[in-house]
Design a protein around this nucleic acid. Structure first.
Lengths: 209, 209
DNA sequence: CGGGAAGTTGATATAACTCAAGGTAGGTGG
DNA sequence: CCACCTACCTTGAGTTATATCAACTTCCCG
């Protein structure tokens, strides 16, 4: 169903698709937790994940956080409607980021497909947040992650339970209980808290639609 | 700002704007509830609302519905990452739709800003669905609607409580109680169930951030 | 007027949140 | 190499916001 699933593997060395004809740029390294850009900063380029993972999020005045997307190896982020960032972006783990400055001439033609993919993703996520239960949300999350890591049964989870909660609109405890429930029902196996094996994929995908 | 934002009432006969006569061949009429496109249909063009209002939504297998966006007069919708619609779109009230076929040459340049605006909108809506209470969601909804209708204190609501619920991830009863609460606190006045006056805009906007 | 759809309000149920206590694992220094 | 420390995670118990079920009201529209 997702059109953007040609990522090879979350574990292998990062693959860089030649989607964008960009001026060659150095890859910058970001330690876990370090900021890539902040809300209000001037948006001047795009970012492509070489290795590692990134979270993009907004904050409410009282500190509530909504992660709008995670980006894995080979994925591109940082689009803005105007010249200013409306979100924060930081590294989840040690991460390499390639900076991309599309040439002015055909910038739109290069950006449009990427922007539309992000739009579709965000719209699908609205359905999850608006209408799915905690277990359904976690099921959809795991399937999405698996697909973006190559569609294998083994899923590597580069983010904490807090991050998952802030992405799915749940608390850390509810996320943990959803994992436990899926494990108890033999739908997944928890190799560690950051490593999951999908045992009954069909059941999982039935839950998320 | 928006050409046709001063709709008098969701029930009144649709007003036929002057532009319509200038390009009559491109406009189609849709009665309330009639489908504009369906999930799985081939996406071949964009749509601009001339008058009326449109809802774009997805369904889960068991009938749960998530409205991902409403579109009002002058707004454009129908972008897809691939050539297939992933959502349903239908008219909320009697609606005029202009069909747009961007010329192949500069399609991307025209579409990109529209797509990015939709993306920003969807991302902001994620924050509402993921992290805000029922009253906060309704407050954000009313402010958004007011802004898109020209920023006046009087807000015309072209959709039912069910539609609002399916947009905000709430039930019809919870939406109704949120309206009643805002009314009771003298933040809004309910002229009718489809017509609201914003009395304390600052309070309302403080609630939604 | 009368009937039906839409909206409101009340009572109760429940999923998820909050608060609290333990458990686990990876990293560091002894 | 082990023991401790700290982060993160899990589980349990009680609370709360929203959903559900149900009755009543209002407003169109014939």
């Amino acid at each position: 169903m997702h059109a953007f699933s040609r990522t090879v593997s979350g574990h292998a060395a990062p693959v860089r698709p030649a989607q964008l004809r960009e001026q060659p740029q150095a890859v910058s390294f970001h330690a876990a937790g370090s900021e890539i850009y902040g809300q209000g900063e001037r948006a001047k380029c795009l970012y492509q994940v070489e290795f590692g993972a990134v979270r993009v999020y907004r904050l409410l005045a009282d500190g509530r956080r909504q992660i709008s997307a995670f980006y894995l190896a080979s994925e591109t982020f940082g689009f803005e409607a105007d010249a200013v960032h409306h979100f924060f972006a930081d590294a989840l783990v040690a991460t390499g980021i390639r900076i991309i400055r599309p040439s002015a001439t055909d910038m739109a033609a290069q950006l449009l497909p990427l922007a539309l993919r992000s739009l579709t993703r965000a719209q699908e996520h609205l359905l999850v947040l608006g209408r799915q239960s905690a277990v359904e949300r976690v099921a959809a999350f795991l399937l999405d992650l698996a697909e973006r890591q190559g569609g294998f049964d083994h899923v590597d989870i580069p983010m904490s339970r807090i991050d998952i909660g802030d992405y799915l609109g749940l608390t850390i405890e509810t996320v943990s209980r959803a994992f436990s429930r899926l494990k108890q029902d033999r739908i997944i196996r928890l190799l560690s808290s950051r490593s999951v094996e999908i045992v009954r994929r069909k059941t999982l995908s039935d839950m998320s639609e």
